[in-house]
């Protein structure tokens, strides 16, 4: 279970005196296992901030961020890797390791978790198969299209069966066809029992999903609906 309890995030030097100083203000919500949640809101609303608080990349200025047994805001740099092995992350800019090919990028997530070589040799081809990139296993990121890179990133995010997959605008750089491929993959991963948290601007995607939607505006939650729609506030 994921829980944000009265979480505020004020970036250093972000105070403008109008009360709009913080990226997040008193945000409270919970996400149950196996949910598919979309985080929506205009640019700067605080979507990425929420996701980065969850991975421990950012520390909240106030409040508690709970992930299962972890109190994320209290973890040290040595403890963070343990938390992160329960989370798969996907970004708009893919963030693949440039000097490693698709196979190695995906394998890296397993190596980081300490899997042995035999398991890696078995799981990576399966994941490549699932994202439809069997024939691009030995291509380096610069030899892949945006859609292909994002599929490698998804394979890397799900290969170690994390409880949660977090995707921050995963379709932002993709054409409509690739966009829907990625959303379908996320749906499939969710069906297999993984919680998915998707931050997006994309009205079409949100309305099409028909799942829970948390709407943010200027760092506050303004709507939180099961089977929500994309509403611009």
């Amino acid at each position: 279970m994921i829980a944000f309890q009265n979480v505020s995030k004020i970036y250093n030097g972000n105070v403008d005196g109008n009360g709009h100083s913080s990226a997040l203000m008193e945000v409270t919500f919970q996400i149950q296992p196996k949910e598919f949640v979309s985080l929506v809101g205009r640019s700067g609303a605080g979507k990425s901030t929420i996701l980065n608080l969850l991975t421990g990349e950012l520390k909240p200025s106030k409040g508690r961020v709970i992930f299962g047994a972890y109190e994320v805001n209290k973890l040290s740099y040595q403890e963070l890797p343990h938390l992160r092995r329960h989370i798969g992350v996907i970004f708009q800019d893919f963030r693949l390791l440039p000097n490693r090919n698709s196979y190695e990028n995906i394998a890296f997530a397993l190596e980081a978790c300490g899997y042995n070589q035999a398991d890696i040799d078995e799981l990576v081809p399966q994941a490549l198969e699932m994202v439809g990139l069997k024939d691009k296993a030995y291509n380096f990121p610069h030899e892949l299209s945006g859609g292909e890179k994002q599929r490698v990133a998804i394979a890397r995010a799900m290969i170690h069966r994390p409880e949660v997959i977090m995707a921050d605008e995963p379709t932002g750089n993709l054409d409509p066809f690739n966009k829907w491929e990625i959303i379908k993959l996320l749906g499939k991963i969710n069906e297999l029992g993984t919680t998915v948290i998707l931050a997006t601007h994309d009205k079409e995607i949100v309305n099409n999903l028909g799942r829970r939607v948390i709407t943010l505006d200027s760092g506050r939650i303004v709507l939180d609906e099961e089977k929500g729609k994309f509403v611009l506030v």
């Binding site: 991975t55 990349e57 343990h82 980081a112 978790c113």
Partner: peptide, 12 residues
């Protein structure tokens, strides 16, 4: 790259 590795859960 270092940041990515950390985000994927690699230890220091």
């Amino acid at each position: 790259e270092i940041g990515i590795m950390r985000l994927v859960g690699a230890s220091n």
